[in-house]
Amino acid sequence: MKVTIIAGARPNFMKIAPVIAAIQEKQQEGYDISFRLVHTGQHYDKNMSHSFFEQLGIPEPDANLEAGGGTQAEQTANIMVRFEKELLTNPCDLLLVVGDVTSTLACAIVAKKMKIRVAHVEAGIRSGDITMPEEINRLVTDSITDYFFTTSVVANTNLQKEGKTNTQIFFVGNTMIDTLLKQRSRFTPPAIWQQAGLQPRQYFVMTLHRPANVDEENNLGLLINEIMGNSRELPVIFPVHPRTAKNLEKIAVNHPRLHLVEPLGYLEFNYLVENAKAVITDSGGITEETTVMGVPCMTLRDSTERPETCITGTNELLGTDPKALAPAMQRLFDGKWKEGAIPALWDGKTAERIVAHLIELFAVKQQPVVVI
């Protein structure tokens, strides 16, 4: 069985790392299963160096389509054209896509038109906000996917409502959490830890990148002023997304307790998160990680595709009105934030379950292992 695995942006690599490890383990057991890793090049990230792949145990991609840049339409078209050539040269039995980036959508379409079956890891999550590019990617990808590997019962229900059958849906857990649990003992403090004299539970971590929060300069300024005005005397560490950095320059943000830093590596960023008093974010993935690490999380969005982080975990959806921060901060400092729990099957074994299902679905045989 030949599997082509797609990754287009940095979070994708965290999701596919444990899947690759699980396939390699089955190969060692003699199963006839192989993979080809294709990086679409959708996002260029200077932190995606050899050390990044080495840290997460990911082999260097077999191919890089270098399809980044341009508008969303141009990028989608570039990925599709280049990936079609890749599949013609290197055919496979199954395409495995993860998450909800442009590469997920584009490669799924190409594969289906070439009569290749598609499996979607992190399928079925829905925000209900069709203005989000990610939501469009999720809906279109899942409309043509053959096998759905889900992170929650909520995702299962979403897919069932869309007409998917139970024989297509596999509730397996969360591969992001596989990576988190595997790497947790290796988290390491970034330079800002010493530079700012940080102490555990005595600082905030903030990440912002969604248009509703960062594209309108006045709103961004109000949001940061609310955060700094209600975080008492604690430092706020803000790894700045390039999109946000441009607007911060325009409004000349200057708070002595606000530390703007370059985007951090996986091990460094999660060290900060694990030791923070709380995280303020508009990212979906971070809400999953804070839930598992038991860190209070405030999400500055009107909807979330990961409701389990609010229902079960430590996350709370505040909306995009800056005024919602004050009461949330008050509850945090009063020690009244919910403790939360870890969602079902977020146990570090998700990738093992995915590969076991693939072996069963494709009737992959185990060859005799010859010991020399």
Rank of each mutant, 00 (worst) to 15 (best):
A326W: 09
Y31D: 07
D129C: 11
E29V: 12
K246D: 10
K182I: 06
P263K: 05
E274H: 15
L264T: 02
Y203R: 00
G69R: 10
V154E: 13
R82W: 10
N213G: 11
F35I: 10
D142C: 12
Q42R: 04
D100C: 12
A77S: 13
L198M: 09
T312P: 06
R331F: 05
K336S: 07
I79K: 01
M329F: 14
Y44N: 08
N247W: 08
L260T: 13
G265D: 14
L264E: 05
T89W: 03
P200V: 10
M298H: 03
G340D: 04
A9M: 07
N218E: 10
I109Q: 15
I130S: 12
I5W: 00
A21L: 10
V205R: 05
G124L: 10
P307N: 05
L234S: 01
S185E: 15
S185W: 12
Q72S: 12
V81Q: 14
N137P: 03
R232L: 11
V3S: 01
I192D: 01
A119S: 11
H255A: 05
V19M: 07
R186T: 15
W337S: 02
K336P: 03
E60D: 13
A341W: 05
M298I: 06
D32N: 13
V3T: 07
K85N: 06
V205P: 02
P91A: 14
Q194E: 15
G348A: 03
F187S: 09
K338T: 06
N315M: 11
H357G: 00
P211F: 12
R232P: 03
G340M: 04
E54Y: 09
I280Y: 04
V98D: 02
F149G: 00
F83A: 02
K113M: 04
E305L: 07
V118G: 01
H39L: 02
S49N: 15
K115F: 06
P343K: 10
L223Y: 02
L317K: 08
K46H: 13
G70Q: 12
Q28K: 15
I130G: 07
I79N: 00
F148V: 01
N12R: 05
E134C: 04
A67F: 01
I33R: 02
N47S: 14
P239A: 08
K365P: 02
Q195M: 13
V172D: 00
E217V: 14
E74G: 15
E288M: 07
R117A: 11
A324D: 11
C92H: 09
L258C: 05
Y147E: 00
A17E: 01
I280L: 15
V295D: 00
A196I: 11
A9S: 09
L317W: 09
K113R: 13
T309N: 07
V370L: 06
L317D: 06
N275I: 10
N275G: 09
P18N: 06
D302Q: 13
E86A: 01
A196V: 15
G197S: 11
K112Q: 08
I372N: 08
T157R: 14
Q75E: 07
M298C: 03
G197R: 12
I311V: 14
G163N: 09
T145M: 03
E226W: 09
P18H: 06
H120M: 08
Q75L: 10
G173L: 04
